[in-house]
């Protein structure tokens, strides 16, 4: 189990390293003495790739030593249990917040985001949830608008 997590971790780091290497490919490198903007990121991306390879390599090696003839740990990825539903619901809630807050204001947006977010959990009880959302909406008003007087959009635009 640990082995397969490490395999994925190694791959993740290699992917991040590749991402930064590609995104930074156009940056001028310069030399170690007079560095351009691309030098430090490239060195780091290289280091990250090496570390990723190291993690991956060790995971595979440990697996071979320990597991003998078993299949490659990549196939055991199921052991990294992922239940994507809560994550996806939360991401939707975040995007809704970003889309709405400028237009609908803080009070309504918080209400809606709390409702949407609640569906990340299991067994939603509507009355309780609505009460919580209303409470949170009121609380944010009290804290951010009344107490801290932050310059935030509070009500829908044009009201």
């Amino acid at each position: 189990m640990i082995a397969s997590k490490d395999v994925w971790a190694g791959l993740m780091f290699i992917a991040f390293a590749a991402l930064f290497a590609v995104a930074g490919a156009k940056l001028r490198l310069g030399s170690a003495g007079v560095m351009g903007p691309g030098y430090f990121p490239m060195v780091l991306a290289g280091a990250l790739a090496l570390l990723g390879l190291g993690i991956l390599g060790r995971a595979v090696a440990v697996h071979i030593v320990a597991g003998g003839a078993r299949k490659l740990p990549l196939l055991e990825s199921a052991r990294v249990r992922i239940d994507p539903r809560p994550l996806l619901v939360l991401l939707v809630a975040l995007v809704v917040f970003a889309l709405l807050v400028g237009r609908a204001g803080l009070v309504l947006t918080t209400l809606l985001v709390a409702v949407i977010g609640s569906f990340a959990g299991t067994g939603v009880r509507w009355p309780q949830m609505l009460m919580l959302a209303a409470f949170l909406s009121a609380l944010t008003y009290v804290i951010f608008v009344a107490a801290l007087a932050m310059p935030l959009p509070v009500w829908p635009r044009g009201w």
Binding site: A93, V101, L106, V113, A114, S118, G121
Partner: peptide, 12 residues
């Protein structure tokens, strides 16, 4: 109850 509150506060 706790997690929607954390969510909302993080957003703000």
């Amino acid at each position: 109850f706790l997690f929607p509150s954390i969510l909302v506060f993080c957003c703000i």
